[in-house]
Every structure is written in structure tokens, then in C-alpha cells.
Design a binder for these strands. Structure first.
Ligand SMILES: [Zn+2]
Ligand SMILES: [Zn+2]
Ligand SMILES: [Zn+2]
Ligand SMILES: [Zn+2]
Lengths: 158, 158
DNA sequence: CCTTTCGTGTTATATTATCACATACGCCGA
DNA sequence: TCGGCGTATGTGATAATATAACACGAAAGG
């Protein structure tokens, strides 16, 4: 399975992998993967798509967690800060990181047809972006690459 | 002057160039660069930095234009749709396009120290991103590349 | 036992963005 | 000349996204 498949892969498998990786990562780094945080990551992984903070909040509320925005935002911030999820700025939405563990510049391919989001990554050190930054004397902190377009399935349909 | 200078260039010159280019572009394409729209572009060009919609709105209001959010958002949408400005998603802010005319994927270098934003661009056809999209069978519509870090000036200061 | 730290929860508020509707103006065909 | 039409501008109201400020409780460490 490629890291770029849009529709044809085993969600339950990648979900389980994600959760295991997250647990491992938190153990290693002394982070607390508390019930809310864990559940939010599960929700993102289950949905396997970008979810808004309020969408997450609704689900948390329905499950007996806190019902106010900070509950969702704090859990999401934790996941994002620790590389377990990403925020997709273009959509004001969050998604589980498909490549946890590696320090990477995520690249999102966002289908405007079906809303599916595929993640891959870019090594910023080499390549055009690194070159651009070097030439400008700019020190890269973090990068966001978000590409909107149509996924293979939606292209066929059209 | 490079298109990537952060601090040391002639603002009044690049502002004038921008406005002339916009007028030209609107004439060519039958677009109406109305007073509000033109003034918003001027404000972005004068500021020479990313400005929030409400910051723009405050200035418009002070100058006798409409005082409600849609006034600013509609003008900004016009400019963005027609390639005269960009929205920087990471900042929920807008900036005049530094390279109007060319159809390009803008790349923003955002300094977290001083807030300055430099724009350059990427040709999506070739390069790593095009390659990634091709491999996934993904048809690129538009792309957003936003890099946060420190500009040369702020690096020295640190 | 006391203090500190962290996580969770709450209420209230700030910030960003859109909806819905009214008016005005230029254009064009009847 | 008139009426319809598209487009731009303006308004008040509201939606969607995000943070501030504070209280409480559990766990860790002295
Ligand atoms: Zn990732
Ligand atoms: Zn699709
Ligand atoms: Zn541009
Ligand atoms: Zn700087």
C-alpha cells in the first residue's frame, strides 16, 4: 500500500497502526496520551479525513467528555504539537498524521470533489523549497504544503 | 532587487508597479477595478505585509466606504480570485501578489520574528510536487506553500 | 502534609467569515 | 423610453472558528 492511496486501502489496519505508533511515541517521549487525547486521535483516524474542531467536539460531547470548545482544541493542540496530527489550514480542519515519527513537512493533496485528503511528505533540506529558503537566507521552522485538486476517482467520474 | 528581499527595497516603487499591473490586468480581462477594490489593493500594497480582513475593513470604514465585513471580504475575494492578491491561510490574512500576471503557486516565507512575508513562486508542473501529484494520479488545481521561520534580519538579531 | 504541575472542566468572549436582503447603476433589447 | 438583467455596494444579523480566564482535582515530589 502506498502512502498516497485515496480510496483503496484498509482503514482499520492503518487506524490500528496509527494508534500503536502514537502510544509508542508517547511512551518514548514521556507524553501523556490521556483518554480525551487518545479518543480524539482515534476519531481522526477512524474518520480518515480532515475533521473540524467542532465536529470532534460534538463526538466528544456525545461520549461524555467535556462539551466546550477548549476540550477539543486542547486535545488537538496536543496531537499537533507532538506530531500525531496536522492542521490543514486551508480547511480549518485536523487530520491524523499518516507518517508519525519522522520529522517531516507534510504535503496534503485535498480532493475538492470528495473531500478526501492524502498525506505525503517532503524533505525540506534538499529540493526547491530548501533552495529557495537558502537563497533568501531564511531559516525554515515549519512548512505547510496544501494542494487542492481532484483525486483519481473523482477524475474518472468527471 | 530580488523577489525575495525581506527588508531592503523600495516600497513606493513596488507599490506603483503593483497598481499599474493590476490596472493592466483588469483592462485586459474585462474586470472592474472599482474604487473599493482598488483601494484595498493599495492598502495591501502600502502595508507590504499580510493584513487581516478586519484590519482592511477598519481602514475602509475610516475612509467612508462601507463598514460591514462583507465590504472587505468581497473586495479581497475579488483580488484573490483574479490573482492580484493571495490569502495566507496560516495567518488568516491577505497580501498583494508580488508576481501578478504569471499563473503561479505562491510560496510564502513568513518570519515569526518580525511578521514580514516574502513571496516567491513555484512552477508546479515540474519538481517534486508535480511528481508527487502525478504519481498519485492527482490533478492539481491550486497549491498553497507557506513556510514559517526566521528572516535574515531576525537571525542576526538572535 | 504541603506545594507544584498538569490535565480537565466551565463560562465568557474574541476573531474570522458568511447569509439574506435592499438599493443603485449601467447595459441592452423591446 | 422603458423594463429586465447582471453586477456592485451597502446594511443588519448570524455562523463558524478559536482563545481567555478561572476553578477543581489527581499525581508527583519534597
Ligand atoms: Zn504527517
Ligand atoms: Zn475525490
Ligand atoms: Zn502571487
Ligand atoms: Zn524577521
Amino acid at each position: 500500500m502506498s502512502d498516497l492511496d485515496f480510496h483503496d486501502h484498509d482503514h482499520s489496519a492503518c487506524r490500528a497502526t496509527l494508534l500503536r505508533a502514537a502510544e509508542q511515541r508517547c511512551r518514548d517521549k514521556g507524553l501523556q496520551l490521556t483518554p480525551v487525547r487518545r479518543r480524539v486521535l482515534e476519531l481522526l483516524a477512524e474518520g480518515h479525513r480532515a475533521m473540524g474542531a467542532y465536529e470532534v467536539l460534538d463526538l466528544l460531547r456525545a461520549e461524555g467528555f467535556g462539551s466546550q470548545p477548549p476540550v477539543a482544541y486542547r486535545a488537538l493542540d496536543f496531537l499537533v504539537s507532538n506530531g500525531l496530527a496536522h492542521k490543514i489550514e486551508r480547511l480549518n480542519a485536523f487530520i491524523a498524521c499518516a507518517l508519525p515519527g519522522s520529522r517531516h513537512a507534510p504535503v496534503f493533496l485535498i480532493c475538492t470533489g470528495c473531500g478526501t485528503v492524502a498525506e505525503t511528505h517532503l524533505d525540506l533540506g534538499d529540493g526547491r523549497l530548501g533552495e529557495i529558503a537558502d537563497r533568501a537566507g531564511f531559516e525554515i521552522g515549519r512548512a505547510v504544503v496544501e494542494i487542492e485538486g481532484r483525486c483519481p476517482t473523482c477524475r474518472e467520474a468527471a
